[in-house]
Design a protein around this nucleic acid. Structure first.
Length: 123
RNA sequence: AGAGUAGGUCAAAUGAUCGCUGCCUCGUGCUUGCCGUUUUUCGGCGGCCGGGGGAGAGGAAAGUCCGAGCUCCAUAGGGCAAGGUGCUGGGUAACGCCCAGUCCCGGUGAUGGGAAGGAAAGUGCCACAGAAAGCAGACCGCCUCGGGAAACGUUUGUUUCCCGAGGUAAGGGUGAAACGGUGAGGUAAGAGCUCACCAGCUCCGGUGGUGACAUCGGAGGCUCGGCAAACCCCACUUGGAGCAAGACCAAAUAGGAGAGCGUUGAGGGUGGCCCGCCCAAGCUCUCGGGUAGGUCGCUGGAGGCUGCGAGUAAUCGUGGUCCUAGAUGAAUGAUCAUUGUCCAUUGGGGAGUGAUCCCCGAAGGAAACAGAACUCGGCUUAUGACCUGCUCUAUUC
RNA sequence: GGGCCGUUAACUCAGUCGGUAGAGUAUCUGCCUUUUAAGCAGAGAGUCGCUGGUUCGAGUCCAGCACGGCCCA
């Protein structure tokens, strides 16, 4: 409110309260959320009644070993951190990685998810 | 140059932007949390937000194959059962690990590998083949004696065949393995039956070594199969679970829960059993117990680096110096630029007959295995690059 | 993170003390039947998860890996 510069700076952060941290949160999203599919990801959206959006990431063992799974999770968090102001507000967002997600670089992830985002805005 | 072998080092570097998790510090910042004083105010502790500082994955973090610390079960105690280890000496908190050595095996060699006690305590197994696979036994053979038949012969007889009684372990064949090997004597034929040498066994003694063992001499009986990663015997050794251990705070829900005393039997717990130990129905007192969730355990340790000394070494002693991750749907990342490494392509130059190698430049690609989860010591497995020592082959092909 | 199991034919499983790997289902062929099914007879198919070791000889015994599965609060 004082100035726009701190707000802009704060916009790209990704603090702990912006993550899904409970098993119950994930179960609610899986049960009641709406789903979008891409080639390598499943995206689940659910309104959460808060003033901000939250992100949860699910990467199963089929994706690869611990290093590959961590890489996928970091890519997805990076995408959320840089694009959360364009996403629908006050939603819980769960991204499930499919089998071949570990082969993607960050730019591939961004293009694949941004395409869904554009389509979502059109709808 | 090629092939191989042993050991060591590193885990690309720097900068910019945006981010993550602890720690320290600051704030006329926010606070509906707690405490003190209290009308409020104010102060302290905390939480959130913001600024600054500083830190932030590995050699295997992996597999969970061993050994420990730590926690609870009794301060882990006795016996049985079950398991582990197994040449010798040393190192260590401990080990199935490490170092040094002995013996055996593989390799031309550098060097590598070995669960390497006991088979003349006992039990068991050794398929098929073969006569026989283990306190022996005899298929074909070889030899002797007795009987019978045939042929020859002047008679005692000689030769061949068959039957019976024995003696043999030379030869044959089987097998992974066949009851020492070679030679000579000896004999009806043979045989350690005897002798010489060799191999091997047992006992005694000397020398070297702490010891495993090595070596030398003597005696003995002449010979004894293999498998204990088959049961087993001997020596040493192991209590069980595991940080999701365990301790504390504490919504909802349900009505009990905890402490003290305590005889006998049932029952429960402590590892599979027995003992032992603890709890347990009763009485008295008290009001807490506990799931979701949270806090602690949680990182300073058998710690790293380095100098000196002891030791062949593993390692130990001592001095100095450093603090170096603590997450919990799980932090250490993303993008860009430059430099360095490697790969194949291409241009130029040089060496060489040639294969090929070296230097300079260009656009391009690659950069492995892999992510702490209580902490250490090892082992094993996965894996990129570089360096050093040594061995063999070819040495001008 | 820790603890515990399993791997044998296309599928489901046996394999006792180490000695030529079997059964059922499925597949194929033949008989029977108008045909199919059922029934009868026969056949094919195995690096016993992988790599080493012990042994004369390992599915089996012993190590080390790989893959799959289960449990804890």
């Amino acid at each position: 409110m004082v100035a726009s510069a701190p707000l802009l700076k704060r916009r790209f952060s990704f603090r702990r309260h912006e993550r899904l941290r409970r098993r119950k949160d994930y179960e609610l999203a899986f049960r009641h959320g709406s789903r979008r599919h891409t080639q390598n990801f499943t995206i689940i959206l659910r309104p959460n009644g808060l003033k901000f959006s939250r992100l949860g990431v699910t990467v199963g063992k089929k994706v690869g070993n611990a290093v590959k799974r961590n890489r996928v999770k970091r890519c997805l968090r990076e995408f959320f951190r840089l694009h959360k102001h364009k996403l629908p507000p006050s939603h819980d967002l769960v991204i499930v990685a499919k089998k071949d997600a570990a082969t993607l670089a960050y730019n591939d992830v961004r293009e694949e998810l941004a395409a869904v985002l554009v389509r979502n805005n059109c709808i």
